[in-house]
C-alpha cells in the first residue's frame, strides 16, 4: 500500500550490504584493520568535489556564526538605515534607488545599499544567512529525531501501531503544505499572542520551526520504517530476540547502528531543503519579518526591485544557490563514502 519512496536515499539492497559489513566486522587487510567509519572517511578525503563542497558549507556556517564579529570589523550593522539617513541624492534618490551604479556598491558598502530602506546589504546578508541556517539546522535535527523515533517504533512494533502510524504519515504527506503554511501561521501566532502584542522575532522563528517540523518528519519516518521492517526479519535481530534481549537493547544496539547511513544521508539532504523551504515561505510573506535579517526575506525584497536594481537580488540569490549546490554535492559525497556501491 505504501507508494514507493522516490527519495534519493540508498536503495534497500545497498543498505543491506552495509549492514552485512558491520555485522561481519571488516575483513582484515594486511596488517592494519579499519572500521567502516575510517574507510568512509578515507574515501571521502579522496573525493575532491566532496571536499571542496564541504569547505564551502563550513565557510557558510562559519560566517553565520561569526556574523556579529565580521560586522564589527566592517563597521556597519544590518539595522541602521544609512541610505535614508543621508540627505537625498547622496546614497539614494527620491524614489529610493541607489545613486551609484550596480546597487550602490563602493568601498563603504561592499555589496551596495538596499533600495528604499537604505540598509547595508553586506551585513544584512550575513545576518540573514545566520537566521536561515539556524532555523534550518534546528528543524533538521528535530525532523530527524522525530522521524527516526516514529519510523523505528512503527517498523519495530508492527501490527496496529504500524498501521496507525502509516495512515498518519499518509495524511501528513497528502496535505498541500505550502497552502497550509500561509493559511495557518496566523493560527499559531494567535494561540500565543493577543492581537495588540508585538510578536517577537524568536517566536516567529519557533513557529516556523514547529510548522516545518510538523510536515517534515513524515517522509523520513516512512523511509526508516521500511528499513526497519526489512531489518527486523534478519537473523541477527532474531538471534538477539532469542537470547532474550530487551526491546530497548534491540533497537539501540542492533537496529540503530545499521540505520546511521540512511539517517545521515537523509539529514544532509534535508538541511538545504529546509533552507529553501524557509526562503520560499519568506517569499510568500510568512515567517521571519523585517527588521530581522533573513535570507528569504532578502530575496523577497529583491523581487520587488528586480527590474530597477537587479544587483540587490543577485547577492542573496546567488549565495543561496551556491550554498544549496555545495550541500547537495556534499550529500552525494557522503553517500558515496558511506555506500561505495550505491548507484545513482
Amino acid at each position: 500500500m505504501t507508494p514507493p519512496t522516490p527519495s534519493a536515499a540508498a536503495p534497500l539492497e545497498v543498505t543491506d550490504e552495509t549492514v552485512e559489513k558491520s555485522i561481519t566486522s571488516p575483513a582484515p587487510k594486511a596488517t592494519e584493520s579499519r572500521s567502516p567509519g575510517q574507510l568512509a572517511w578515507r574515501r571521502f578525503k579522496r573525493d575532491r568535489t566532496g571536499f571542496t563542497s564541504a569547505c564551502i558549507v563550513i565557510f557558510f556556517f562559519v560566517i553565520a556564526i561569526t556574523a556579529p564579529l565580521i560586522a564589527k570589523l566592517y563597521g556597519k550593522n544590518p539595522y541602521t538605515q544609512y541610505g535614508q539617513d543621508a540627505p537625498i541624492g547622496t546614497l539614494l534618490n527620491d524614489a529610493g534607488f541607489p545613486i551609484k551604479p550596480n546597487g550602490g556598491i563602493d568601498g563603504d558598502f561592499w555589496f551596495g545599499v538596499e533600495p528604499s530602506m537604505g540598509r547595508d546589504v553586506f551585513t544584512f546578508l550575513l545576518y540573514g544567512i545566520r537566521t536561515s541556517l539556524m532555523i534550518a539546522t534546528v528543524t533538521t535535527i528535530l525532523v530527524t529525531v522525530i522521524g527516526v523515533v516514529v519510523g523505528i517504533t512503527a517498523g519495530y512494533l508492527g501490527g496496529r501501531t504500524d498501521y496507525f502510524v502509516s495512515r498518519v504519515i499518509d495524511i501528513v504527506l497528502s496535505f498541500p503544505s505550502t497552502l497550509f503554511f500561509i493559511a495557518f501561521t496566523p493560527v499559531v501566532y494567535g494561540l500565543f499572542y493577543a492581537a495588540d502584542e508585538e510578536i517577537p522575532a524568536w517566536a516567529r522563528g519557533v513557529c516556523l520551526i514547529v510548522l516545518l517540523t510538523a510536515f517534515g518528519w513524515a517522509s523520513i519516518a516512512r523511509l526508516l520504517r521500511g528499513q526497519v521492517l526489512a531489518l527486523r526479519e534478519r537473523e541477527f535481530v532474531e538471534a538477539a530476540k532469542v537470547t532474550g534481549a530487551s526491546p530497548a537493547r534491540i533497537i539501540f544496539k542492533e537496529l540503530l547502528p545499521n540505520l546511521w547511513t540512511p539517517i545521515l544521508i537523509q539529514s544532509t539532504l534535508a538541511l538545504p531543503a529546509f533552507v529553501t523551504a524557509e526562503a520560499g515561505l519568506a517569499f510568500l510573506g510568512v515567517g521571519i519579518q523585517d527588521p530581522t535579517p533573513d535570507w528569504g526575506v532578502m530575496i523577497q525584497r529583491g523581487a520587488q526591485f528586480y527590474t530597477d536594481d537587479i544587483t540587490f537580488m543577485i547577492f542573496p540569490g546567488v549565495s543561496m544557490i551556491i550554498f544549496v549546490l555545495a550541500f547537495n554535492l556534499l550529500g552525494d559525497s557522503v553517500r558515496d563514502a558511506l555506500d561505495p556501491k550505491s548507484k545513482r
Partner: peptide, 20 residues
C-alpha cells in the same frame, strides 16, 4: 497577499542610479 505578490505593492518604483 500578505506580501506575497510583491509586484503589486505600490511602494517600489523609480529610477535606479542617476540623480533621479
Amino acid at each position: 497577499a500578505a506580501g506575497a505578490t510583491t509586484v503589486l505593492s505600490a511602494c517600489s518604483s523609480g529610477n535606479a542610479g542617476g540623480d533621479g
